[in-house]
Amino acid sequence: MPLWDHGLESTFSKVLAGHPAYEVTGGEVLYRGENLFDMEPEVRSRAGIFLAFQYPLEIPGVSNVDFLRVAYNSKRKHEGLEELDAFDFDDLVQQKLEVVKMKPEFLSRSVNEGFSGGEKKRNEILQMAMLEPKLAILDETDSGLDIDALRIVAGGVNELSQPDNATLLITHYQRLLDYIVPDFVHVMEGGRILTTGG
């Protein structure tokens, strides 16, 4: 566990998404009426939980577009919808690229391989744009970003924010909050919420 995680909020976000390193010994988290802890991580994702990683993984040999298509179609299947074919999928992904101002060349590159820190974070937001989660958890998405990348990421998050979805931002810094105005703020320390305000 990273040392800076004094508040255990990264732990909390990983537990919500179902990281195998954490065992839940008690309690439950109700998400739209169901206990999250009864679901496999992929089922949580398909049901609308999205965790943007602080350190996104590199997957050499798997192109971004293939990865997005498999992820996207897993969700479609879960919702009882038909999988999108390559052409329709391509149209959709081109639109979503706009959200994070990424060039189409990004799609043919291997997932996160050789991406800069900023590109990786933008790629996370692209995945989020594709999967349209109900609850997105952005874990330190602002860390390691230069100001331009920060603006793009923040712009993407704002654009994806809808009345019927929620975004949980985890941050230690003010600067992200210059671009994203939260509805509520929770201050966490040692795994407990100290104070809440809106």
Partner: peptide, 29 residues
């Protein structure tokens, strides 16, 4: 690595497919 499989699972890909994809990536090099 669990972390790797989890990353793919968190994008809705089931554990078995995630493993296949990671194996493929290992071979692709």
């Amino acid at each position: 690595a669990d972390d790797e499989v989890f990353y793919l699972q968190s994008r809705g890909i089931d554990a078995e497919s995630a493993q296949k994809l990671l194996v493929y990536a290992f071979a692709f090099e």
